[in-house]
Design a binder for these strands. Structure first.
Length: 453
DNA sequence: GTGGGATAATAGAGAGGATC
DNA sequence: GATCCTCTCTATTATCCCAC
């Protein structure tokens, strides 16, 4: 789901009819704006920031307030901060975990709050600020919640609103912030039809706001991203007709998995980790086809060698080097089937082949930019490798340059330093995609909502 | 390392129908 | 009436990804 032009482009000077309508409403009461992607929700937020601007002028220490915007993901926070910064004359700063905000003390926060009138942050960061009492909800004049449908359960956004509610309950004179919730999809989970009104009501209560949408439906539609949907079917049972070679690889991997699970003197967690890696390879072969499976084996082979070297537990190191040796053997078996690498197209699963077909069809288009969403990081990595391979080996796919992007998570990328580097790289990837340096971006859920690509 | 949400897979409970 | 099967709904568990 992409946010459309309005949120990234140069500041809009003239608000559209429905933007004005919703803005007028939000001026008067707490509101949840329900507007489709590309309709310029951020612009309404900007108008509102300007409307309440007299409250945020001046020194925080001397009682001036601040405007806070919270969002769900790091890229979204940065993007919103940038967009707002372009349209208002105040200092706008974005905050997320990668800046080390977790370790900031009161003094550091005070300098930040003193310096910047508009703070855009990941919901968890703002919640931490509230919990540490670095700022009180009453010192905020306007709280903007982006993708506010996340304000449910125990999500950080919900916790922020619980803080708001408790202040409201305990102190009737407290000057609470105006709430502005922004969302394109009010409910984002499977539910029964009869549950909808309850869920909507819950959201209104959690946000202490009223759900509103524009009367000028046609006008909104004109400015909303309208995708044309085409559904392609594929045959999942094609796995059953897998080549003998693939079946052989899978039975080897299964054998290794069994050996690992039955190994003695190895911690349960370590076993689990190794089994997961083996499982990933098996899934790669089954879901994506032999070419990707082979690539996965090569990748993990190198990875395993590195890991087993750094392992202090001798039993574990032994097991890992054994697995590594068996992977090398598997990779050797693959090398014998060299033709797999000559034309990958003949060695992919059915749905990947449908995907390649779509990519192929776009070759004549003037400028193609494609986003491919996948479920796991692993397939993101493999698919982009596949497209790159095709680009280099087949003229008809010369336009299929690709990279992948996934969220940051310490579990899969070692220590915090690596994570941070990784984050920087992701930002660079996204920027270069926007510039049009390459054509296909394979992504997990990180880009699913809000991020302007 | 911890916590959270969404979702898929699984098992279990209950309703209803078919058969003996 | 007893037994078996199927369908549907629900609760639990596991997995994945993302955040700090």
């Amino acid at each position: 789901v992409l946010d459309g032009d309005a949120e990234a482009e140069v500041p809009l000077l003239v608000p559209r009819v429905y933007q004005l309508e919703l803005y007028e409403h939000a001026k008067e009461t707490n509101s949840i704006l329900v507007l489709g992607t590309g309709s310029g929700k951020t612009f309404i937020a900007v108008l509102l920031i300007k409307h309440f601007a007299d409250q945020i002028q001046g020194s925080f220490k001397e009682g001036a307030k601040r405007t806070v915007m919270i969002a769900n993901t790091v890229p979204l926070v940065r993007q919103q901060a940038k967009a707002i910064g372009q349209q208002v004359s105040y200092n706008v700063q974005s905050y997320d975990g990668s800046m080390g905000v977790d370790y900031w003390d009161r003094e550091k926060w005070m300098t930040e709050v003193e310096k910047n009138e508009v703070l855009v942050m990941v919901a968890q960061v703002f919640l931490d600020m509230l919990n540490h009492n670095y700022i009180s909800i009453t010192q905020v004049n306007l709280l903007i919640i982006d993708e506010c449908h996340h304000t449910t359960g125990s999500h950080a956004m919900r916790e922020v609103m619980r803080n708001y509610a408790s202040v409201k309950q305990n102190d009737s004179t407290a000057k609470l912030p105006r709430i502005l919730g922004l969302t394109a999809s009010i409910i984002q989970k499977k539910c029964k039809q009869y549950e909808i009104s309850k869920l909507l009501n819950d959201l209104e209560i959690s946000l202490d706001s009223i759900l509103i949408t524009s009367k000028h439906y046609e006008e909104v539609l004109r400015h909303t991203t309208k995708p044309r949907v085409t559904i392609l079917h594929y045959n999942p049972t094609i796995v059953e007709n897998m080549s003998e070679h693939s079946q052989m690889l899978i039975s080897h991997l299964n054998g290794m998995t069994e050996d690992v699970s039955s190994a003695l003197d190895i911690a349960k967690d370590d076993k689990k980790k190794i089994c997961k890696v083996l499982r990933n390879m098996r899934l790669a072969i089954e879901d994506l086809g032999e070419w990707c499976g082979r690539r996965a084996i090569e990748y993990e082979m190198e990875h395993f060698e590195e890991l087993s070297c750094g392992e202090s537990d001798s039993r574990l190191a032994e097991l890992m080097s054994e697995i590594s040796a068996r992977l090398t053997m598997l990779s050797g078996l693959c090398s014998e089937k060299e033709e797999t690498f000559v034309d990958p197209r003949a060695h992919v699963s059915h749905h990947v082949s449908r995907l390649l077909h779509i990519v192929h069809r776009t070759r004549t288009a003037e400028s193609t930019h494609g986003l491919i969403f996948v479920k796991t990081r692993f397939s993101a990595f493999l698919l982009s490798a596949l497209l790159e391979k095709l680009r280099l080996s087949n003229e008809e796919y010369a336009h299929s340059s690709s990279k992948c992007i996934v969220g940051s998570n310490a579990n899969s990328f070692g220590d915090l330093v690596a994570t941070r580097l990784h984050l920087k790289e992701q930002t660079r990837t996204l920027e270069s995609f926007r510039r049009g340096d390459f054509h296909f971006l394979v992504s997990t859920r990180v880009l699913e909502e809000g991020v302007d690509v």
